[in-house]
């Protein structure tokens, strides 16, 4: 590891926190959306009376939470990461670092770490919001939720890296990121949580990195009784394959000047 990595990390983290819009979207947007939808959309807060016990006492927000967690991953991966790296390239930050003993790769690593912390904070806020406001229970299989979350982060951050790999300007990266962000919301089930999702969209979503993550977390959170599945094997494989393809491609195509 290069000398000064710690200083680079702490300085970059402090500067990151000075962008109010990015901070809001990365950290607070998921929980605000979750609470907002919960109170605005009729029926979401009601108990699922026709569901098998013990879920007949729980609110439909239990289906919504995994979608919001997927959204928190997609937000950082597609709105924050591509813009950050393309702006570094545009402003000559990567080139400036190349003239010092610190490798420019380090600042990319530092920002992946910062954004990993951001997505963890955003997700914990969303989980806390769902539990406190709507009484969403703890997951049936926490391990499956965690695995689907981590692999979702890996696949989506790789996608974000690839989006930023060639973009000459922050605005270019932002445009491409947004183009991918809206379909991501769709396949994560943000508009059609849980059973409300049409079959064709569910099948399509299963093979996208963020759709697979959302479905994996749903299966882990609600369990076999509600979803009819124990382990999201296909979704896990899908996310591993996406990561294995996107990450090396992003690294290979990344332009340092």
């Amino acid at each position: 590891m290069n000398r000064g990595f710690g200083t680079l990390l702490s300085t970059e983290a402090r500067v990151w926190l000075r962008e109010p819009v990015a901070v809001f979207f990365a950290l607070a947007f998921p929980v605000v959306l979750l609470v907002g939808f919960g109170y605005l959309i009729p029926g979401l807060r009601e108990p699922m009376s026709d569901a098998p016990p013990p879920w007949n006492d729980e609110s439909a927000m239990s289906f919504y939470l995994p979608s919001v967690l997927a959204l928190s991953i997609a937000t950082v991966a597609l709105t924050v990461i591509p813009v950050t790296f393309a702006t570094f390239r545009e402003k000559g930050v990567l080139r400036r670092l190349a003239t010092t003993p610190m490798r420019p790769q380090a600042i990319v690593g530092v920002h992946l770490v910062i954004n990993l912390a951001a997505v963890l904070v955003a997700s914990l806020l969303a989980v806390a919001g769902a539990m406190l406001a709507f009484g969403v229970p703890l997951p049936e299989n926490p391990g499956v939720v965690l695995l689907s979350f981590v692999l979702g982060v890996a696949a989506m951050y790789s996608l974000g890296l690839l989006v930023s790999a060639r973009a000459p300007r922050g605005t270019t990266a932002s445009g491409v990121g947004m183009l991918l962000y809206f379909p991501s919301m769709l396949v994560s089930g943000l508009w059609t949580p849980g059973p409300a999702m049409p079959d064709w969209l569910e099948t399509l979503g299963k093979f996208t990195p963020i759709g697979a993550s959302a479905q994996g977390m749903t299966i882990g959170w609600l369990g076999e009784v509600m979803t009819g599945e124990v382990f999201p094997a296909v979704q896990i494989i899908v996310m591993v394959v996406w990561t294995a393809v996107l990450f090396p491609l992003g690294v290979k195509l990344f332009r340092w000047t």
Binding site: R14, V15, T100
Partner: peptide
């Protein structure tokens, strides 16, 4: 948004 002081100390740490 990086300040003069932060930039100087960050770069100093690389050497």
């Amino acid at each position: 948004k990086i300040t003069v002081d932060e930039a100087m100390r960050q770069f100093a740490a690389f050497y």
